[in-house]
Design a protein around this nucleic acid. Structure first.
Length: 476
RNA sequence: GGCGCUAUCGUCUAAGGGUUAGGACAAGGCCCUCUCAAGGCUUAAAUACGGGUUCGAAUCCCGUUAGCGCUACCA
């Protein structure tokens, strides 16, 4: 049975990179009928915050993908500690009594591999000093004498090799007795029977240590698949600290991305279905997902200070928006509209939906594209806008007067009668249809760009349109 | 510094010994059109550099350069 896991540490909000790791794990599990484990790696009590944990759940829940099992690493501390001591008992780790401040300089030749003298300490001596209360860290004893290198058979990067001579004796337990990340992570992966680890490439270099720990634990080494990193346009690895909320998934949510559109966009960063398909349903993504399609080069997300969203993400969102059923889209739009226009009714929003479906790319844009449907009073606009192409103020006045008259007694205030009435009026005035429509559009919507006129007037309704025509006439 | 990884249009990517190096986003143009969109057509745009191997290299090998990552008693 395949088992994968996503193991965030609650030290900041869920960002795009984390979301992508989650998504790839999820996709891989679903593709192969495996189990998706969510594990909160919260062993770093110093940096953990509840806010961060909440934010991670916010983000994950919004993604709407779900998971099968849940664990908190802090509940499993005992396991990690016992695992470390088991390694010690096998003679594969030793106590290092060197005070943290006395550690050799990182670049002193050979010295950084371990602290001199400590790995040769006899067991008796080691036990005696420990019993005397001398603080120590527990270090893994890298078998440099018996083994030339460690090989990571990565599913994405292939066999990656590192000489044991280049591996330092890394810590398993801190001097406080608390397990390090490497120890805790491997002990948990082993205990939870994780079979495949998909994670960011920043962990590739750590994996050599992990292989050693798994072997020391006497378990099968999980297969790893490292993912290329997500970079910011400034060339640095995407990070919450450096790039701020633009990388938080809640930023996407609040701007009106559809969860699936976001998932779709993110999945295309470092992975390709290799068939030129970009817009995919969830089912298609599951069907097409494979480790073969994962790239090895880092991917840059294209955002700027002015626009935090990659244009392709926005485009994909627009695509998914357009393929939503009108009722669904109206429901998605609801919260965004009522946030700004508390009096907007669901019926009104539903009526407006077909008119804006192809005109918004983010849900929140409903408030700028369709505000005039929900406003009682139009914001002031430049009367010059009312003047049609190749026309003048006099023409605008004639158009609006005529429109006022025709619309007042049009048989029904719907698309077809409005079409007939207004085209007829244009003919009577001997002007082009466009010259007829533009002043009316501006009078009704308060600006030049809006959805098609007849539908717009129909949704606005006679009781709204007539006063707005009067108002326009008033400022001409 | 040491070690590891990577390098195709501005961005995401396809092609993995033989292609006019393909697609998408963004940009430009044209068409459609009551405006704005959407849609259709179209233009410009890339194999980091240098050596090999080969009849033939974006693709395999070596080197250079550049970028990124790791190098903690952080995760």
């Amino acid at each position: 049975m395949m088992r994968v896991r996503f193991a965030p540490s609650p030290t900041g909000y869920l960002h795009i990179g984390g979301a992508r790791t989650f998504i790839f794990n999820w996709l891989y599990a679903r593709r192969h009928g495996g189990t998706m484990v969510l594990r909160i790696d919260d062993t770093d009590i110093e940096r953990n915050t509840q806010t961060s944990l909440d934010s991670i759940f916010d983000g994950l829940n919004w993604l709407d993908l779900g998971w099968d099992e849940f664990y908190r690493q802090s509940d499993r501390l005992d396991l990690h500690t016992k695992s470390a001591w088991a390694i010690f008992e096998k003679g594969m780790a030793y106590r290092d009594f060197t005070p943290a401040s006395a550690a050799p300089a990182e670049d002193s030749p050979g010295g950084w591999l371990f602290n001199p003298g400590m790995r040769e300490l006899s067991r008796e001596e080691s036990d005696r000093r420990a019993a005397a209360g001398e603080p120590f860290v527990l270090r893994y004893r890298v078998p440099r004498e018996t083994r030339a290198d460690v090989v990571v058979p990565d599913l994405v990067y292939g066999n990656v090799t590192k000489a044991t001579a280049d591996l330092e004796d890394f810590a398993l337990l801190r001097s406080t007795g608390v397990p390090t990340y490497h120890m805790a992570s491997c002990a948990d992966d082993a205990d939870l029977r994780i079979t495949h680890i998909l994670r960011g490439q920043e962990h590739l270099a750590n994996t050599f240590k992990h292989v050693l720990i798994f072997e020391a634990l006497g378990v099968d080494v999980p297969k790893t698949a490292h993912l290329p990193l997500l970079m910011a346009p400034d060339g640095a690895k995407l990070s919450k600290r450096k790039h701020g909320p633009v990388v938080s998934v809640t930023t996407y949510r609040d701007a009106g991305f559809l969860p699936h559109a976001f998932v779709n966009f993110v999945s295309l960063l470092g992975w390709s279905p290799k068939n030129d398909i970009e817009k995919m349903t969830r089912e298609q993504m599951i069907e097409l997902f494979s480790l073969e399609g994962i790239n090895r080069a880092n991917a840059t997300i294209n955002f700027t200070d002015e626009d935090p969203f990659d244009p392709k993400a926005v485009w994909l969102n627009a695509e998914h928006l357009r393929s939503l059923e009108l009722d669904d889209l109206a429901a998605q739009l609801g919260p965004f509209v009522t946030q700004q226009f508390p009096n907007a009714t669901p019926e009104k929003i539903r009526a407006v939906t077909p008119l804006i479906r192809e005109r918004i790319r983010l849900l929140r844009e409903v408030n700028t594209v369709a505000d005039f449907f929900f406003l009682d009073q139009l914001a002031p606009y430049d009367p010059a806008e009312l003047i049609p192409q190749k026309g003048d103020a006099a023409m605008a006045k004639r158009v609006l007067t005529k429109a006022r008259e025709v619309l007042a007694d049009v048989p029904a205030f719907n698309h077809d009668s409005l079409d007939a009435a207004l085209r007829g009026a244009a003919e009577e005035l001997k002007i082009k249809a466009g010259q007829m429509f533009q002043p009316i559009r501006v009078a009704a919507c308060g600006r030049k760009n809006a959805p098609p006129l007849f539908e717009t007037l129909e949704v606005l309704g006679k009781e709204t349109v007539l006063p707005r025509l009067d108002a326009a006439l008033g400022i001409l």
